[in-house]
Simulated scan of single mutants.
Amino acid sequence: MRIVIAPDSFKGSLGADAACAAIEAGVRRALPGAEVVLVPMADGGEGTLDCILGATGGREVGLTAADPLGRPVRARYVLGAQARSAVVELASASGLPLLAPEERDPLRAGTAGTGELIRDAISRGAREVLVCIGGSASTDGGTGLMRALGVRFEDAGGAELPPGGAALARLARIDTSGVPEAVRRTRFRIACDVTNPLVGPEGAAAVFGPQKGAGPEEVRELDRALVRFADVLADTYGVRVHDLPGAGAAGGTCGGMVAVLGAEPVPGCELVAETVGLAAALDGADLVITGEGRLDQQSAAGKVISLVARLAGRNGTPAVALAGEIVHPFDGLHALGLTAAFSIADGPRTLDIMTKSADELLSAAAEQAVRLRFA
């Protein structure tokens, strides 16, 4: 038997590597002689850096950068083997997990630290930078990131705006005259796993603002500020990102980078799958096991489980998903090729206990899934 294990991370408990190890332990208890292929996955958000590093090599670079509130934090990125390319994960310096719940500041949090990582990579020779933008703590349209690369965002009086999304309501002018030539010559790609527009009821503020600490009035304030930001972008660059699919990712970072830096959004899941060789790994497999922390209707839209199911379905390979929580219905995933989905919970448990016991629960669920298929 050849079994491929290709999960996303179980956020807050297990990284993709650890999830692979837990699933493998369960598989081997059920089928000790099976050939097991581990393919840790990510969707362009947190964990993507590790997946790409593990698959391609390169060099990890550590750097002290600004966290979402401007405090120093130790962050990292990956510099390619020839130092001509780099992979930067926004969550490393600008991610929500860097803030305690009581520290979340949706109006003023920024992405400057991510820009500092990019600036360092460019200074070392990188001319192609992939920015993985999931897990953001801010709704600043990526202005902090771009400010670190030399872009100025000014009010009507010519003063530079302070950090954060709320200040964009006063944006009048964008000045790129101070952007170094090396930055101008750099190709930027954005690994993005969502299709939300920049503004409106499905936009960055409305959908993602609450998880970053924004209440209803703050959501409305941030959305108005992002509308102003989008208007100025359209007037300055002739690029309308108001309703561009994916522009709302990472608090509008995708939209801002597309307009100002000419960045190219790419589906994060597909990029990671291509990099780690997922399609080749699935060729000839008897079973594929995937998973993530929560499986719901959104999992069918650009998430790891949906891509694994689709590739497995093309090959006629049974595909099983394991998740901490599963929310019905997910007919879309079955239509893509997912055979079955199971929660790893073995009874009523608190989230805290589930998080602390995730490896044991995931391993046990994997064992039972394999026994059901091959007993």
Rank of each mutant, 00 (worst) to 15 (best):
P245Y: 11
A375S: 13
G164S: 05
I5H: 00
R373F: 15
R29L: 14
S363D: 05
A341G: 14
G165R: 02
D43G: 05
A75L: 09
A280W: 12
K356I: 06
S306K: 10
I289P: 04
F153T: 00
P7S: 07
D67N: 15
V276H: 02
V194H: 03
G110W: 14
Q297T: 11
D223H: 03
L130T: 03
A358R: 01
L271M: 13
L49Y: 08
R185L: 14
G58F: 12
I353W: 15
F10N: 00
A375D: 13
G277T: 07
E46Q: 13
L287E: 01
R104W: 04
T111D: 05
A126W: 13
F153E: 01
I52F: 10
A148K: 06
P180R: 07
V227I: 13
S85V: 02
R224D: 02
A366R: 07
P267A: 07
I353V: 15
A204S: 13
P201I: 06
P210L: 12
L168G: 04
P68W: 13
A281N: 04
C254T: 12
T56P: 00
V39Y: 01
Q297E: 14
D8L: 13
K356E: 15
A137T: 09
K11Q: 04
V207W: 09
A312V: 09
F188A: 05
A100L: 15
L244I: 01
G313W: 14
I133T: 01
L49G: 10
R84N: 11
A301R: 14
I344Y: 11
S85R: 12
A205C: 12
D120P: 05
G142Y: 11
G12R: 13
V183P: 03
L307R: 14
A148N: 00
V320I: 15
E360T: 11
V232D: 03
S85A: 07
V239W: 02
I305S: 10
P197S: 08
G115V: 05
V37G: 02
G62S: 08
A182M: 09
A83N: 03
P265S: 05
S363Y: 03
T275W: 05
P101T: 04
V320W: 08
C269H: 04
D235P: 00
P162Q: 07
G142F: 09
A301D: 12
V194L: 10
I3N: 05
I326Y: 12
A121C: 03
P201N: 05
L307M: 11
V241C: 03
M1I: 02
P216I: 03
A341M: 08
L333Y: 12
G284C: 08
T111K: 05
R240T: 05
I344N: 02
G144P: 07
V183L: 11
M257P: 05
R349I: 07
L38C: 08
P216A: 14
P201H: 06
G262Y: 10
G150F: 08
A66Y: 09
F229Q: 00
P68G: 01
I289W: 08
P201A: 06
A93S: 15
E116P: 10
R349G: 01
R224W: 14
G313K: 04
E160P: 12
G45L: 09
G347F: 14
H328G: 07
G115E: 04
L14S: 06
V39H: 02
R59K: 13
A358F: 05
Q211I: 09
